[in-house]
Amino acid sequence: MKKEKMQRRQARLKKELPFHIMLLPGVIMTFIFSYVPMAGMVIAFQKFIPAKGLFGEQKWIGFENFIYLFNMPGALTALRNTISIAFWKIILSLVVPIVVAILLNEVRSSKFRRTVQTAIYLPYFMSWVIFSGVLLDILSPSSGIVNRFLNMLGMNSIFFLGDNRYFQSTIIWTDIWKGFGFGTIVYLAAITGIDQSLYEAATMDGAGRFRKMWHITLPGMRMIIVLMAVLSLGNILNAGFDQIWNLISPQVYETGDVIDTFIYRIGMIDAQFGPATAMGVFKSAVSCFFISVSYYLAYKLFDYRVF
């Protein structure tokens, strides 16, 4: 009996061996570049001296870095800015693509629709360096095309990227601008999946265009909308480093400095590795909680599984 079991196990191992070999390179790379940095979060609890190496003999100091960090003047501002920017980005990156997808779906000429789609995907494929370069140029208070337009209308120039009153909204809306087109893809796919006979029946019953949008299209997208909303929960501390670092300047730190730019400044520029990692650990822990909750909800509500 026992021998038979052993044989079966060996046969299984032999059959599955190629799978293990295939996964080996990916496991090694992921281990080195994801798991080692996770272990490296111990830096947050050390008086870290880079010359001694990542897992060298460092002095352990408990929560001192965290205490130091949250007594820094900019830390809480960065946290507050992060949440407010990320919150509005999450909301608008749901609403805007949904509205645009519904409107695109009403277009009858598929050639026109495809042309519009190609155009609105374009900003997504640009890097934030390039897009920011474009923004710095067109939003410039003296020579930018936007302010020249405002001046033409008799309004004063607005210093979008240098004025604390406008910086956050500029960051939020330019992010939506860059991403909304690409965001329509999943919603358009969901609309395509709606049963066409529902529309025909509604038309027979005399429902107008907007009634059909409200009572058929939107409910038909309900699943995917809730799923996307749930999954975007994990971004609550992601204000978007690539974007903000390219657009920020010291006069708008008060409203524009976020966790990631803060970490970069104190860690990589001022070389305060301990406090910077402490901030990173804080961000990772909170994000991990929200991402786990979001995947758990998605799994419970929609049986959504990543793998």
């Binding site: 940095p37 490296g40 830096i43 970490i263 590795f273 990173g280």
Partner: peptide
């Protein structure tokens, strides 16, 4: 690895 992230400094130190 999708849930937890080491953060910038440990990642940099690893490389």
């Amino acid at each position: 690895t999708m849930l937890l992230n080491g953060g910038l400094i440990p990642w940099f130190m690893t490389i």
